[in-house]
């Protein structure tokens, strides 16, 4: 449905994106992950024919974004970073204008409007002026605007920004439900969002793709085991052996205590996914009289992986 091939965009000397390639088949939901300024918006703007690329090609539904821009535009619903709203218009007035602009036939406009209002939970505010709506509602109007002509492809630039947690969940559910019927690309810098909604994740940083993976691939990359950081006042050669004897423990890493005095007595205990060994561990430590100073679970969050993938230099080891 969407294929992007070695896409590049430069603003003067500044390289916004470089050699971006990915494909997306019909009905899939793809998340663009990356820090601010990574090139997410630029890629989306090229796909929506807002601006041309400096190199490479991209096509949507078999139409080249540069050669057949009109055909591409007809098939795309786009929610830009800032929802493109006219504050003086009422919600339904605005949505009807967009429907006409997108070339939705007159007879389909009422049903399109009804659908979009319903899906985005805008029924109660359809007669209100957009300028008087809260940020969350405006974001929803922006989403409704992208949906109104029932496009094959939806491109959403940070669709959940500015929404409260309940609304975020609603919008995610909505996007999930739209997948399958529509092909969706969304950008976000919130990782759980990507894994919650999307089948495919593209991590982009500094204008380059650093990882393309499925949701499962990403989560397995993120979490292989539970890790616990342990700090003991004293220990002996039996310590590692004893800890390894606890059922569920896979490995004990004592490298952290070998180098500096500061981290003397620190261990990282790895255990199988889903097994909490803290109670047994504490018992062992106390019984052996090693002097338990600290024990805390190390959560390797999505953010850590994200940071690892998107930071050029090796992240500082904080264990």
């Amino acid at each position: 449905m969407i294929s992007v091939n070695q896409l590049g965009k430069r603003y003067g000397d500044i390289v916004a994106i470089d050699d971006v390639s990915f494909t997306l088949s019909k009905g899939e939901v793809l998340a663009f992950l990356g820090p601010n300024g990574a090139g997410k918006t630029t890629t989306m703007r090229i796909l929506t024919c807002f601006m041309p690329a400096t190199s490479g090609t991209a096509s949507v539904a078999g139409f080249d974004v540069f050669e057949d821009a009109m055909e591409v535009k007809r098939r795309i619903g786009y929610l830009p970073e800032t929802p493109p709203l006219y504050p003086e218009m009422t919600v339904s007035e605005y949505l009807i204008f967009v429907a006409k602009l997108k070339g939705l036939p007159r007879r389909d406009q009422p049903s399109g409007l009804k659908n979009a209002l319903e899906k985005c939970g805008l029924g109660d505010v359809s007669g209100r002026m957009i300028g008087n709506l809260s940020k969350g509602f405006r974001q929803r109007v922006g989403l409704a605007q992208a949906l109104i002509h029932n496009p094959e492809v939806l491109i959403l630039d940070e669709p959940t920004v500015g929404l409260d947690p309940r609304q975020i969940i609603e919008i995610r559910e909505l996007i999930k439900s739209l997948g399958g019927e529509h092909t969706i690309i969304l950008s976000t810098h919130i990782l759980p969002e990507a894994t919650a909604v999307c089948q495919k994740v593209v991590i982009i940083s500094g204008g380059r793709i650093v990882a393309v993976d499925s949701q499962e691939g990403l989560s397995s990359r993120i979490r292989k085991s539970e890790k616990i950081s342990l700090h003991l006042r004293k220990f002996d050669e039996l310590t590692i052996k004893k800890i390894l004897a606890i059922s569920g423990v896979m490995a004990v890493n004592d490298q952290v205590n070998s180098k500096e005095n500061e981290s003397y007595g620190r261990f990282i205990v790895e255990s199988e996914l889903g097994i909490d060994v803290r109670e047994r561990l504490a018992q062992t430590v106390v019984e052996s009289g090693w002097g338990l100073l600290e024990m805390k679970p190390l959560t390797i969050s999505l953010e850590d992986v994200f940071l690892k993938l998107t930071t050029e230099e090796k992240p500082v080891d904080n264990h």
Binding site: R45, C49, K73, R74, Y78, P80, P84, Y86, L101, K102
Partner: peptide, 14 residues
């Protein structure tokens, strides 16, 4: 200023 040009420029209108 209102970024609505993004809507116009990505709609099927020349």
């Amino acid at each position: 200023k209102g970024r609505t040009n993004e809507l116009l420029m990505t709609s099927p209108i020349t």
